[in-house]
Design a protein around this nucleic acid. Structure first.
Lengths: 337, 337
DNA sequence: TTGTAGGCGTTATCAG
DNA sequence: CTGATAACGCCTACAA
């Protein structure tokens, strides 16, 4: 007993005294089998421990049931929450998720996509980075669907799901001003992804419209530690900001900790803070952060729904670009909520 | 253009003017192909966008390259960190991870395992729950390897990776006593998993040996909110504890927040706290939590390494149970670190 | 080194 | 409703 021996449909057929086809039909939803045959097959299958080989089925049907999830920083609160929701809904839709980690290096996403092709994934959902045009085209040409979440790319074919980052950021500016803040700042990472930049630009634009300047600082990667450094930089300025919009909740957490512990500032009395993502920690009472909630549920359901829908024959005018709304979650880090 | 049309080896062969076998060999490491042929094949493959079909390859080789990761609560800091490491190391080993979410309902793990069988996964790594004996046996019989992480189960066959929860918990008791604490408490969830219970028992046993009693409280699931409730319960006791070991960092975070904000206690002066897992938030300066680090890297590498090793022919005396050490990470939540 | 033939487990097709 | 047969795309002898 060394080799891998899964039981095949033939063995089930032999035991049940029917043909392979009968077995196949028994496990194909909506096929015509007599209740009697089905019962005998099921009994034999159970006894033998038979399970349909999805590798072979995928080969025949040209549909593997595999969906590739391509992402970096999968252990991050926001990412992991999104992945959780995606895998969950994919499962409920009868699909199975293949998770591929990318890093921020060049070609990382392309390699992942190639892996997706090798396993004949029905679709790939990209949460980080951006694939090269040629490889993306290859996916599309091969009949693989593509979903891009929060990545701005305008080549046709993939479904693009984005948030209204720009507008959302504008609403924060208004909230700050209403709270009596005048010295606005934006804390960003150096990642420079479209959604991050859209938040920055939206915030600056809205503030400008309100007649206020914004101090912008960018540092490192989008994490807790970077938030601390950003606080260091922004709070030591001569004109110390009285309101800071952090591009990300993780940045905000680091920023708040530094502001309180190194600068002895009280929030929101001396300093108002807002974040983005509504990660779980934002609701922890140490932070109690006012932030924007990513509509994770909806992002996932829209993606899964789109994947399940039939491919339009004639490049129909279906909207393949979704713009979802991020709701402001009022907590205690801005005065007068 | 509706159907899914991936390019096949035959097409590459036609274009390169060679046989299918030549193409196959070109993509099989260690096969004998002349550099000339290989070059022509590669050129054709690149031009056509050919990628080996791993579904078909798996069918032939009886080895899909797929490893199933079975877990619940995948968005939790500890879980997501472990998943990250596993997927990463699996990728580096040329495998690909299939992620299956389970919930805490009965049969959830069994369903996941059946999915693993359907996709002919080479192995399944279980991070949550416990499979039914019969389905686990079926996996093993089918040649699928099984790895259980932090789940106590004694049926032979799977690789079991556990921590020295019991001993580790004992070390915390000593640390508390050394810090001058006398009124010890243990905050646990009601999940009752073996590792959680081992921590509880280890802590109580060590405290008893030191001549101290332990107040044990259990509530809810292993999360932040439960930690707050546990604080509520433990800190309102007449004999208020001066040291609390929380079964999990997440519990500890909730506990600390409640202790500080609702009971105005300072840590570690009035209350010492310890946790377990060393999640990222434990190092955030709001918590600065003394805790045990899960050797995530090693857990993953041991699992992957074991999966890569050949199956012993004769039920050889290979150790299929690993007991890894959790190191105490000293931070500021216990006096006198 | 190369090509040919057969088979992996499944489903789709088509008689019966 | 059932059973035989031909694919699906690939790999592994085997012979050239």
């Amino acid at each position: 007993m060394v080799a891998k021996v899964f039981v095949s449909a033939q063995e089930v057929a032999d035991r049940a005294g029917v043909s392979r086809s009968a077995v196949s039909r028994t496990f194909t939803p909506g096929a015509s089998v007599s209740p009697e045959t089905r019962a005998r097959v099921m009994e034999a299958a159970d006894a033998l421990g038979y399970h349909v080989n999805h590798l072979a089925r995928g080969l025949m049907r040209n549909e593997s049931g595999i969906i590739c999830l391509i992402a970096s920083d999968v252990a991050t609160p926001y990412r992991s929450a999104l992945l959780r929701e995606l895998t969950l809904q994919l499962q409920q839709g009868g699909k199975v998720a293949m998770l591929i980690n990318t890093d921020r290096s060049d070609g990382s996403v392309d390699r992942a996509l190639r892996q997706a092709i090798r396993y004949r994934a029905d679709a790939s959902i990209i949460l980080s980075g951006l694939p090269d045009k040629s490889i993306a085209q290859l996916c599309l040409r091969s009949g693989q669907r593509l979903v891009l979440i929060n990545r701005d790319d305008d080549q046709p074919g993939p479904l693009r799901i984005n948030l209204d980052d720009h507008e959302a950021a504008g609403r924060v500016a208004t909230a700050f001003v209403r709270a009596g803040c005048r010295r606005l700042a934006f804390a960003n990472s150096e990642a420079g992804t479209p959604s991050l930049m859209a938040r920055e630009e939206g915030f600056v634009a809205a503030a400008t419209a309100l007649g206020l300047a914004v101090t912008v600082e960018r540092f490192g990667w989008t994490g807790y530690e970077a938030g601390k450094v950003l606080a260091q930089r922004l709070l030591t300025r001569r004109e110390r900001p009285d309101a800071v919009f952090c591009a990300t909740d993780l940045l905000a957490c680091g920023f708040m900790d530094a502001a309180r512990q190194q600068f002895s500032l009280t929030i929101p009395d001396q300093l108002c803070i807002a974040g983005f993502d509504d990660i779980e920690q934002a609701s922890w009472s140490s932070y109690n952060l006012t932030t924007f909630s990513q509509p994770i549920r909806e992002i996932a359901s829209r993606a899964v729904e789109w994947l399940g829908a039939p491919i339009p024959e004639d490049h129909s005018p279906r909207r393949d670009s979704l713009r979802l709304k991020a709701d402001l979650v009022w907590r205690g880090s801005i005065r007068g909520g």
